[in-house]
């Protein structure tokens, strides 16, 4: 099985003190969609830019399609497509001119018309880049990455700041690329994006990978596929947490400012027991919900913090 991307023990230290990446090792198979999920400042962008050959790591090794960046970098660049977190393309060029410009750098680019159609930009082909909406600009950024007909697509926060419809459009484009056999590496801080799009994920925090696997595996690893959240009157004493933990089927408990989250296997067993326990304490349930566990829960469980603190 060929690995499209491999890196071992990547480290990046800025100005000798800020450690942005602290020992990241990843192996991404050809044809996979791999995501780096983590909060802002976790080191995702630094990691992906090292993999793209745009940043020199302080230490560690990178292999893209079996080659190191130090050799054949021009040949490697022929085979990858990049969309940076924030590139402001020239506003006074039209969409088609921009795609043709990027295509001109590759030995054998795809025809601009094909890319325009695939990215649903045909109608805007002759509009200036400055006149595009946020979603259209982002699709153009991906178009400039696809015009070289790459084997690997690197996308740094491709949907940040987009409306839901534009996000779904981009997801379709990424899936379409993957379905043709392409490998995708993306960063995101949206757990729904990671869950829906990625075959495998690495959860990154403070420059380190703290968990890796498919979304389902990560959620399973958490123990308990369901989350029961409730708050009750008069349950503020510390011993209460022990009570909840001892309920049948509870894997873990977390107190988030008065709202108790229970990770459970079978809510239909846990919830009746929970209601009984509350009654025995002569307390009252103020609020009760149950939902499927998500990557957000995985992240909270692993770090004690939420992905997006806003």
């Amino acid at each position: 099985m060929g690995f499209a991307i491999r890196c071992r023990d990547l480290r990046k230290t800025y100005d000798g003190k800020v450690e942005a990446v602290r020992g990241v090792s990843l192996s991404i198979a050809a044809g996979e969609c791999f995501g780096l999920l983590g909060p802002n400042g976790a080191g995702k962008t630094t990691t992906i830019e090292i993999l793209e050959g745009l940043l020199e790591p302080t230490s560690g090794e990178v292999e893209i399609l079996g080659h190191a960046w130090s050799r054949n970098s021009r040949d490697l660049r022929e085979q990858i497509g990049i969309s940076l977190q924030e590139t402001r393309l020239s506003e006074k060029l039209s969409v088609r001119e921009t795609i043709e410009l990027f295509g001109s750098f590759y030995r054998q680019p795809r025809p601009a018309q094909d890319v325009l159609e695939e990215l649903q930009l045909t109608e805007k082909a002759d509009a200036w880049v400055g006149k595009l909406s946020g979603g259209q600009k982002q699709r153009l950024a991906v178009a400039t990455a696809l015009v070289g007909n790459p084997k690997i697509l690197f996308l740094d926060e491709p949907t940040t700041g987009l409306d839901p419809q534009s996000r779904r459009q981009l997801w379709d484009i990424i899936r379409e690329f993957q379905s043709r056999g392409g490998t995708v590496m993306l960063t995101t801080h949206y757990m729904d994006e990671a869950e829906k799009l990625c075959d495998r994920l690495a959860i990154v925090d403070h420059g380190q990978v703290i968990a890796e696997g498919s979304p389902a595996e990560l959620i399973a690893k958490l123990g308990g596929h369901h989350v029961v959240e409730f708050s009750a009157s008069g349950n503020s004493d510390g011993s209460a947490l022990e009570t909840w933990r001892s309920l049948p089927g509870v894997e873990s408990v977390r107190d988030d400012a008065g709202v108790i989250s229970l990770h459970v296997d079978a809510p239909h067993i846990t919830i009746p027991a929970l209601l009984d326990a509350v009654e025995r304490q002569h307390a009252q349930i103020l609020h009760l919900t149950t939902r499927q566990a998500s990557l957000e829960d995985v992240f909270v469980r692993l770090t004690g913090r939420h992905l997006r603190e806003d």
């Binding site: 044809g31 094909d114 007909n149 056999g181 075959d199 696997g213």
Partner: peptide, 27 residues
């Protein structure tokens, strides 16, 4: 826990490209 094997796909599934090739000075 067992890590499931990622789907294996062939790498040469790049788009069919027109015969057009860029010359040295195209960029």
């Amino acid at each position: 826990m067992a890590i499931s094997e990622p789907p294996v796909r062939e790498m040469q599934t790049r788009q069919p490209v027109s015969a057009r090739r860029n010359g040295r000075w195209s960029g």
